[in-house]
């Protein structure tokens, strides 16, 4: 049964991607991207990757199409017909590469086998011992924030850097302070009354849900990355319906920019704290006397740092794009 759902979802994914190849026009492409994101999130649920599905549903079906839409709103949705046309060459190249890759997959272990090499090395140790060592049932959270905390620190810094890069790329050339519009550019002739009322009742619960995902991540699917994305989507939804000035009054841009650095700082300081006590970087055992308790505190603080950075970087990126839209868009 699971296998049948797997096949159906994968076929739908291929169909969506093929439609993306065929369709002209950016608006339709973006809608298909959103569908693609939702389908892959459903696929991840079937594959037991509930934490990943969470993130992909919010990112792939929500935030990513939204940023694309904002850019298209500035640029225009037209896609030129014959631009970059060397289809024969492209088909040949893609065909050969694909054929080689398929030949490569023939040596792969069969799908879903419990004795595949990927499942033999570190994963059994995580599954067997992480419960005793950290006292946290969700293995994904404990691996993410404790066993592979160095990795996660790297990822968080990449996200932070991307936020800074977006600000630098988009802000240069315009005066950031003055470019921020103060008169409401939202169309007053056509207020989104129904959308505003409904979203106003839902956004508080979305934010509450983000906190639930953040702090329940130890026991069920969830954690800093997912919570950050969900929190940011709530804020972005408000911004979409009430306009950039309104959301900038609620959450001021300098504050978010500060917060995006604060999250990385919280993460790094936790690491340095253990170094100051003569232990390796990000060794949580110094945080409390009981080793399991120490792990739990460490993981919670790290996840908090991740959540703050992810949420504020996404909000910062949204501000940068929405600012472009409101100053240059039509």
């Amino acid at each position: 049964m699971e296998l049948a759902v797997n096949i159906v979802l994968l076929s739908l994914l291929v169909t969506t991607a093929a439609a993306l190849v065929l369709v002209r026009g950016l608006l339709a492409s973006i809608m298909l991207t959103s569908i693609y994101g939702l389908l892959s999130a459903s696929f991840f649920v079937i594959m037991d990757a509930v934490d990943v599905a969470f993130t992909e549903a919010a990112v792939g079906a929500g935030v990513s199409p939204l940023l694309l839409l904002l850019s298209v709103a500035v640029i225009g949705r037209h896609e030129a017909r014959n631009a970059g046309a060397r289809p024969l060459f492209a088909v040949l190249l893609v065909g050969i590469t694909g054929a080689l890759l398929i030949v490569g997959t023939l040596d792969m272990p069969a799908f879903g086998r419990a004795d595949a090499p990927a499942h033999l090395h570190v994963a059994p140790r995580y599954l067997l011992l992480s419960g005793e060592e950290t006292g946290i049932p969700n293995v994904v959270t404990s691996v993410l924030a404790s066993y592979r905390a160095y990795d996660t620190l790297g990822e968080v810094i990449v996200i932070f850097t991307a936020g800074v890069a977006v600000i630098l790329i988009l802000a240069s050339g315009t005066h950031r302070g003055s470019a921020r519009p103060h008169s409401a550019p939202v169309d007053t002739k056509d207020p989104h009354t129904i959308l505003q009322v409904v979203s106003k009742t839902m956004i508080p619960f979305m934010l509450l849900f983000a906190f639930y995902v953040q702090f329940h991540g130890d026991y069920g699917p969830g954690g800093g990355f997912q919570a950050g994305v969900i929190f940011a989507s709530g804020i972005i939804l408000y911004g979409l319906l009430y306009g950039l000035p309104a959301i900038c009054r609620v959450i001021r841009p300098p504050v978010v920019e500060l917060c995006s650095a604060l999250g990385v700082l919280v993460y790094g300081v936790t690491g340095i704290l253990s170094m100051l006590q003569g232990r390796p970087f990000l060794d949580y055992s110094v945080l409390a006397d009981d080793p399991i308790r120490a792990q739990q505190i460490g993981i919670m603080v790290i996840e908090l740092g991740v959540g703050i950075t992810v949420a504020s970087v996404l909000i910062v990126i949204y501000y940068a794009f929405a600012n472009q839209f409101e100053t240059n868009g039509n």
Partner: peptide
């Protein structure tokens, strides 16, 4: 769980 951890972070880095 290991691929889940890797991909979870990769999605957010991807956006």
């Amino acid at each position: 769980p290991l691929p889940h951890v890797l991909i979870l972070t990769a999605i957010v880095v991807g956006i």
